[in-house]
Design a protein around this nucleic acid. Structure first.
Lengths: 195, 195
DNA sequence: ATGTTGACTTGACACAGTGTAAATTTACAC
DNA sequence: GTGTAAATTTACACTGTGTCAAGTCAACAT
């Protein structure tokens, strides 16, 4: 599960991470990454089969470094559906800015690359499970908004918490992360719960 | 303003439109478009300076064919803020599916292409004005939701009506257009108005 | 000391796809 | 017929990915 301690491989991953972070969405070239990692371009192909897989590995490396699993585990421990929704929105909403640049790269690549699409779909599928679990908890408590089926509510939450939505609000509209978090907290309650 | 009646140019635009529609987001190659238009690849460069400009011209061609302006004019004639919001949400929400494939192409290209980014920003800026106008009308009526400044409300409406949101709900979640329209109508009222 | 192994480098090349350029053809107007 | 505009053909430069073969170099075992 955890990344082996292969120093060169990790230098490459860090270089990719850095480059993507400094220029979100504009997929860096293999030669750029190689230069940044202080290694020949060809060395990249000793560690990763191709460019796409390198970027996919970079997202996995991030998840590992940041400890997504632990982060999301917290929201699972919440008692009531309402608490669980709050915790999940806070956790995921706070995670997006950390991974945005690299995730965005994959998001753009998925349109033209089969493997990138698969990795992306899987990643978003995982996130969706968190949404579904929160909605189920609300449903069990009887605090799910009246006009919505659980599936619809999950879809709405999933959309609300999508990386695109975060990007739109913070990058296009200029909202601060704090402002984004506050509004999403309020919106998710308003839209998805009865209270 | 209107496209000159240059038959070859129009054949090319139609070919691009067709190809993009049949494979959204995956930008067709110049040679594909040329073949579809029944013209040599080089002929494309007689009519458009480059690939990006060809796609930009295609979106303009669509707007012209569909008559966006007329469509949006309708929502401007609404009396109350509430009517105006409804009309705008219905009009734009119904327009997205028509232009989705081509718009998506530009949306993907904007990440790596300066000109595409400019065209996209302008297009979204126009749409934002419609949002702002509806919110202003609500504000004047005193029916704007209490916790929101007009700027925040405009940002939220803009995000709610974004092409990404439409894509997420209809393409990823599998919602029908009708379902999308119904929910967005409801959501926009719930989030942005007092009633 | 010698040989082996693994990781990395160097340099070359095939392949796609965009964009440019020049020479040539086609068709139509007068 | 001549001129002109639009399109074609052919060729090429350029960028970036991915492959390949040969060579270097250090660590390590014997």
């Amino acid at each position: 599960m955890s990344t082996e301690k292969n120093p060169t491989r990790i230098r490459i991953l860090k270089a990719a991470w850095d480059l993507l972070d400094s220029n979100p969405g504009v997929a860096a070239r293999m030669s750029d990454i190689a230069k940044k990692a202080g290694v020949s371009r060809q060395a990249l192909y000793l560690h990763f089969p191709n460019r796409t897989e390198l970027f996919i590995a970079t997202t996995r490396y991030q998840d590992e470094k940041f400890g997504v699993d632990d982060m999301l585990a917290e929201s699972r421990s919440a008692k009531t559906g309402l608490d669980r929704l709050d915790a999940f929105v806070r956790a995921w909403g706070g995670y997006i800015p950390k991974i945005f640049a690299v995730a965005k790269t994959l998001m753009v690549m998925k349109e033209t690359d089969e493997d990138a699409a698969k990795a992306w779909t899987q990643r978003m599928g995982d996130m969706r499970e968190g949404c579904a679990a929160a909605i189920d908890a609300l449903d069990r408590d009887g605090t799910l908004a009246k006009g919505l089926t659980p599936k619809e509510a999950t879809d709405l939450l999933w959309t609300l918490l999508s990386i695109s939505t975060w990007e739109h609000l913070t990058q296009e509209c200029g909202w601060s992360q704090e402002s984004y978090a506050r509004h999403l907290h309020h919106l998710s309650k308003q839209i998805l719960t009865t209270s």
